[in-house]
Nucleic acid binder design. Structure first.
Lengths: 100, 100
DNA sequence: CGTGTAAGGAATTCTGACACG
DNA sequence: CGTGTAAGGAATTCTGACACG
């Protein structure tokens, strides 16, 4: 369930290299509640590959002029949809006694 | 083929957190040709999850008293075996016209 | 051989703030 | 609102070396 994609191990400098986004913007999107990096003991932010994908999506929406508040709402909706899907899948699997 | 596991994005401090190995040892194993981190533009080492797994294996062997030279030989053998396996699989897949 | 440590410099990251719009 | 920038300090990383064994 928790794969490499979700491990928070990438520093902001590398995220910047990978996404092209300024560190300012990356931190700002966190401030707006769009991403949630972990921290090392001494406070350095750590991101996952999943975070990076999220950042790319955010950047695309921003280019279209979508505000961070809207983006946040959209992300929440999508998350809820996924949760529902997973619940459904879980029930189906239980019913048919399938695995994985 | 190239997944998150192979992307070199992790700085040495995080590798240290993840493996428990000192930065000195991590750099030394590179010096001995056991791992090959990438570098950022300004020279900071970047490791992959795969590198981290390799480091754990190295640490285990070292605990058993195996020297780095030996470890290197073993890793080379394993690599060759994998290459052979992949070639064989490729031929089989071609023969049976399978995919993936 | 393998690893610790102290050394000094360079690059990184952090926060809070001011700017513009 | 979203993002750039300059500011100052703290933490990180790098290399080359000496130490011990």
């Amino acid at each position: 369930m928790t794969s490499y994609k979700d491990k928070k191990v990438i520093t902001i400098g590398i995220v910047h290299e990978l996404t092209g986004l300024s560190e300012r913007r990356i931190r700002y999107y966190e401030e707006r509640g769009l991403i949630f990096p972990d921290r090392t003991k001494r406070g350095t932010r750590k991101y996952s590959f999943h975070d990076i994908e999220t950042l790319m999506k955010i950047a695309n929406k921003r280019e279209e002029g979508v505000q961070t508040t809207e983006i946040k709402k959209d992300m929440l909706k999508e998350k809820k949809r996924n949760v529902r899907e997973e619940m459904l899948r879980g029930q189906l699997n239980a019913y048919f006694k399938r695995k994985e």
